[in-house]
Amino acid sequence: RTAFSSEQLARLKREFNENRYLTERRRQQLSSELGLNEAQIKIWFQNKRA
């Protein structure tokens, strides 16, 4: 289980509010910017949509 920092969570929530689905390219960008792997971001979005 991933423990996200408050900064990472704030960024993910802001991104989710703008778009509930990420393109592969956007997921790669977020992964690089947040220091998370793409799978972690993908799962976070899946869980948030559920």
Rank of each mutant, 00 (worst) to 15 (best):
N19S: 08
L36F: 02
S31A: 15
N19G: 05
N37K: 09
R1N: 14
L12K: 00
T23S: 13
E24P: 15
S32C: 09
N19F: 05
A50M: 12
A50Y: 07
A50K: 14
Y21H: 10
Q29G: 04
F45S: 00
S31E: 05
S5E: 03
N19H: 09
L34V: 04
F45Q: 01
E7S: 08
N37Y: 06
L9A: 04
E38C: 05
S5I: 03
Q28I: 10
N17S: 11
I41E: 01
L34Q: 01
R49H: 07
N37H: 12
S31H: 02
L22R: 01
R25N: 11
S31V: 07
I43P: 00
R14Y: 10
N47C: 13
A39F: 12
Q28K: 14
A10N: 08
S32P: 01
E7N: 06
E18K: 14
Q29P: 01
F16H: 03
K48L: 07
G35R: 05
G35H: 07
R11V: 11
R11I: 11
K42E: 15
K48Y: 14
Q40F: 11
S6E: 14
F16L: 03
E33I: 07
L12V: 01
A39G: 09
Q28D: 04
L30S: 00
L9D: 05
L34T: 07
R49V: 09
Q29R: 09
N19I: 03
F45I: 02
Q8I: 10
R20Y: 06
R14A: 13
R27Y: 12
F45H: 01
E15C: 04
N37P: 15
Y21R: 06
L22Y: 02
Y21G: 04
E15T: 03
S32R: 14
K13H: 15
S31W: 03
Q40W: 11
Q28R: 12
G35Y: 04
F4P: 04
S6R: 11
R20K: 10
N17C: 12
S6F: 10
R20V: 06
Q29F: 07
A3Y: 14
I43D: 13
R25D: 12
L9Q: 06
I43N: 11
F45K: 00
W44L: 03
R27L: 15
R27H: 04
R1F: 13
E15Y: 05
W44K: 01
A10R: 08
R20T: 06
Q46H: 11
Q46T: 08
S6P: 14
G35Q: 07
G35T: 03
S5V: 03
L34N: 00
R20L: 03
Q29Y: 07
F4T: 03
E24N: 12
